[in-house]
């Protein structure tokens, strides 16, 4: 464990707490893409298949359970909670996200570390996570205005993988034969997808103005 990875995990946890706060406090999920949340639930379930077979550390197991439980809880809320589901922007959240699932799985069948069920699902989860934010970014472009909590949620979600890139650089420099090409390349693509959001987020923060994304 290094400071970059810890910062990344804490930022990731913070993004989930901000989203839970938004949904719980406002009893609304307006501006949140349910499709992106469903993709994250698939990412965590597919990635943590080793939850019961490989014990790495208490921290590792605890965080895996938190990520799986929170992502499923958010999807459940957005689908079944009477108050929350009414505020879902159904007509704006139209990205065909099942294509992302299919393409990520197809890529995982081709590019993986080992041809085993666990490794293919791990690679699948890495590729899917890289593109999972797309429905959310498309929804924001369409809805134009972004409320503060949603903006912070997406900012922390993008920032966490940027910390992981620093972690991979650090581990590459300090650990012999550390190579994680699949996670590294995918992580760079994932962070790059946030580039324009980060740009407009920074501008709005500098001008102390409302975050507006160009339609």
């Amino acid at each position: 464990m290094n400071i970059f990875r810890l910062a990344g995990d804490m930022t990731h946890l913070l993004s989930i707490l901000v989203l839970l706060l938004k949904i719980y406090a406002t009893k609304s999920c307006s501006g949140i893409s349910r499709k992106t949340q469903e993709l994250y639930a698939i990412v965590f379930v597919a990635r943590y298949l080793d939850l019961f077979t490989d014990f790495i550390s208490v921290y590792n197991t605890f965080m895996k359970v938190v990520f799986i439980a929170s992502s499923l809880a958010i999807v459940w809320c957005m689908r079944f909670h009477p108050m929350v589901r009414r505020s879902y922007d159904r007509e704006l959240d139209t990205f065909r996200h099942y294509f992302l699932v299919g393409a990520s799985f197809a890529l995982a069948l081709i590019l993986h570390e080992k041809f085993t069920v666990q490794e293919i699902f791990w690679a699948f989860s890495i590729y899917l996570e890289a593109v999972a934010i797309l429905p959310q970014l498309v929804l924001l472009q369409r809805s134009g205005n972004v409320d503060n909590l949603t903006g912070q949620y997406i900012f922390f979600l993008g920032a966490y993988r940027a910390f992981y890139i620093l972690n991979w650089i650090y581990r590459y420099l300090t650990e012999p034969h550390f190579t994680r090409w699949i996670a590294c390349v995918s992580g760079v693509v994932q962070t790059a997808l946030y580039a324009d959001f980060f740009y407009y987020y920074f501008i709005s923060w500098k001008n102390n103005s409302k975050l507006k994304l160009p339609a």
């Binding site: 990731h12 080793d50 490989d54 790495i56 590792n60 965080m63 895996k64 791990w122 994680r180």
Partner: peptide, 10 residues
């Protein structure tokens, strides 16, 4: 990577 060493990152 040592054999059997699975992914230690989240």
């Amino acid at each position: 990577k040592p054999p059997g060493k699975h992914h230690d990152e989240l």
